[in-house]
Design a protein around this nucleic acid. Structure first.
Length: 233
DNA sequence: AGCCAGGCTACCG
DNA sequence: CGGTAGCATGGC
């Protein structure tokens, strides 16, 4: 087992399955640890994509508020959002911040989404949608479409940089390819790989919220002793 | 009161 | 190419 896999194993043993991606539509199930039958329909696929845009540079608790606002207005689906007044959309998603930008991102994405007609988009196609960058694209592919694309976020980079596994100025692509390379050779089954990518990302966020949110980063991080590649002092 | 959050675009050199 | 200002709100 390589170091990345050991870190995953340790985090999973400590925190358990995260069942990331809280759904608020449908039966309003919230998080769903150990249940990987999501998303269950086309509307939940869209809900994840919507959440992926809304969560840019924001906490997911804020996103859940926005999603509840839309759900209360019976507008938690692409057709209703497309047909609602722009001002109402902006008000609904206000808790997530950047509502002027994100409202337009969402409408642009809906145009793209409807053109797909249920097809799975490629990563490159997603990246051409305005408002969809690398992390958002991977978020959609991993959590909405169950594709084995590792999602790298600020926490992932911060953790790996702190442990000396990547450089402080490492780029998104470099980190993504490292994680995928270290994990996919061992895990052959695609569905299982998706689950590991999903859980790993969620575990990193859970862990990093506690130990990598405020400076000095890494204080109290129990991964540091075992996995840090930095030479002592 | 200030810093940070599960980023992206536009524009600069 | 890399670097950075601007975008907005809520929580602690």
């Amino acid at each position: 087992m390589n170091k990345i896999q050991e870190i995953y194993k340790t985090l999973y043993e400590v925190y358990g399955p995260q069942g990331w991606w809280p759904f608020v539509g449908s039966d309003g199930g919230g998080y769903h640890p150990s249940d990987y039958a999501f998303p269950r329909d086309e509307n939940e696929v869209f809900e994840v994509c919507l959440g992926s845009i809304l969560t840019q540079n924001t906490t997911f608790t804020s996103v859940v508020k926005s999603l509840h606002n839309l759900n209360d207005m019976k507008c938690l689906n692409h057709e209703a959002i497309k047909n609602m007044p722009l001002d109402e959309l902006k008000i609904a998603i206000k808790p997530s911040g950047y509502h002027n930008q994100k409202a337009n991102y969402i409408l642009e994405f809906i145009g793209f989404f409807e053109n797909l007609k249920g097809k799975i988009p490629s990563r490159d196609e997603l990246l051409h949608v305005r408002g969809v960058g690398e992390e958002t694209a991977d978020s959609m592919l991993l959590f909405a479409y169950n594709q084995p694309q590792f999602k790298v976020d600020a926490y992932t980079k911060r953790l790996l940089a702190h442990l000396g596994i990547v450089a402080e100025n490492a780029k998104y692509k470099e980190i993504k390819e490292l994680m995928e390379h270290e994990l996919k050779n061992i895990i052959k089954d695609k569905a299982e790989l998706v689950i590991v990518y999903q859980e790993f990302h969620a575990l990193i966020v859970n862990h990093a919220k506690q130990f990598y949110s405020k400076k000095p980063y890494g204080r109290g991080c129990f991964l540091e002793d075992k996995y840090s590649q930095k030479s002592a002092k």
